[in-house]
């Protein structure tokens, strides 16, 4: 294992795109600063050099224009990958996303397909404040017609990107900035994992058990998975065995894996860096309570971002974000375990 090649999520994403571009001439990439710069978050690095300006193009700062253009190109037989630099910028282009990209397959009765990937960065924790730090994946997942994925590690990042590029549907590919492996941003070490050289897919809509356990199920996605794993380590020292479910996809949602895990543990904590209300945490809890109420030994809990805009000041933002301590405390309460000295 020592000699296994490890990659960051940024590198894994770029590798998946490059490998697919080599075999599929319809794939092209466009967005702000994705060509010369290789992406603000590094995920298109090396593509311009290999594939040239025709297939790897910097766009004007015109998200409505170029995301709308991706829809038109996809309907015309191409497979565009477009980058919305920060998901927070969806406010200037959501019509192209949810009224065109997500609806044209349905409105056309399958007459047209819209095979495209919209990749976008999510997440905070580095004092970028509330227009550059949100997750917002629940907002995308709420609206029908687009698949939504978000990897927690480089292995999944590559496989999900390859799967997204081969999917005949629009896929929102959300990468968390705290996992991206950019030196200047700080990185979760657990996101840097072994990535096979060859091309492979990770099935969209299939969750993973990131850690097996017996006593409590921690369900999350992206950065939250790492918080969950750290909480599980701490809980293990107290004899509490936590299972961590990495959703990987929100649309489609692997409800069966969640239900099966809770059926085993009887306790559920959802860790959600998106806003608390009307979002993913509520959906996961409903998934269990609608059909598996009897499995629950305690009311489900959620560790989510409170319903406030994301503040700048470090202490304020960190107060609001989910973390391993909050998860472990909730798990102890659910399991009736004492707070360790």
């Amino acid at each position: 294992m020592e000699n296994e090649r490890k990659l960051t999520i940024a590198r894994a994403m770029a590798e998946a795109m490059a490998q697919e571009m080599r075999i599929d001439p319809s794939v092209f990439v466009m967005g702000e600063d994705i060509a010369e710069l290789g992406g603000v978050f590094g995920n298109t690095r090396g593509l311009l050099e290999e594939f040239g300006k025709e297939r790897v193009r910097d766009t004007p700062i015109s998200e409505t224009g170029f995301i709308g253009a991706a829809v038109g190109a996809a309907q015309d037989g191409m497979k565009p990958v477009v980058e919305l630099m920060f998901v927070d910028f969806f406010g200037v282009c959501f019509d192209a996303i949810y009224n065109l990209m997500a609806k044209n397959t349905y409105f056309s009765g399958g007459n047209f397909n819209v095979p495209m990937v919209l990749m976008t960065s999510t997440g905070g924790g580095y004092s970028d404040a509330g227009q550059h730090s949100q997750c917002l994946y629940g907002s995308f997942a709420h609206l029908p017609g687009m698949k939504v994925v978000s990897p927690s590690n480089a292995y999944d990042a590559k496989g999900l990107m390859t799967a997204a590029l081969r999917d005949p549907n629009p896929v929102i590919y959300m990468f968390h900035k705290g996992l991206q492996g950019m030196g200047w941003l700080g990185t979760e070490a657990g996101a840097i994992t072994h990535v096979p050289d060859e091309s492979y897919e990770v099935e969209i809509g299939k969750a993973a058990i990131a850690r097996e356990g017996r006593d409590v199920t921690i369900v999350s996605i992206a950065q939250g998975v790492h918080h969950g794993l750290k909480a599980a380590d701490a809980l293990a020292q107290q004899g509490i065995s936590a299972e961590v479910v990495d959703l990987r996809s929100l649309v489609p949602l692997d409800r069966e894996t969640v239900r099966a895990s809770v059926a085993k543990t009887g306790r559920l904590i959802v860790v959600d860096e998106d806003y608390h209300s009307y979002g993913v945490s509520g959906e996961i809890i409903a998934t269990v309570t609608e059909s598996n109420m009897a499995d629950l030994k305690a009311p489900p809990r959620r560790i989510a971002y409170p319903d406030v805009p994301i503040p700048f000041a470090r202490v304020m933002e960190q107060h609001c974000l989910p973390n391993a301590d909050k998860i472990a405390a909730a798990a102890r309460e659910l399991c009736g375990a004492p707070v360790p000295a």
């Binding site: 991706a70 038109g72 191409m78 065109l100």
Partner: peptide
Amino acid sequence: FACSGIIAQGMGPAAGAALSRQIQ
């Protein structure tokens, strides 16, 4: 032939279809 009921939102897709022809 495609439509959008939202004002001006056929513009981006038309540019994209034109881009598709240009790239290909």
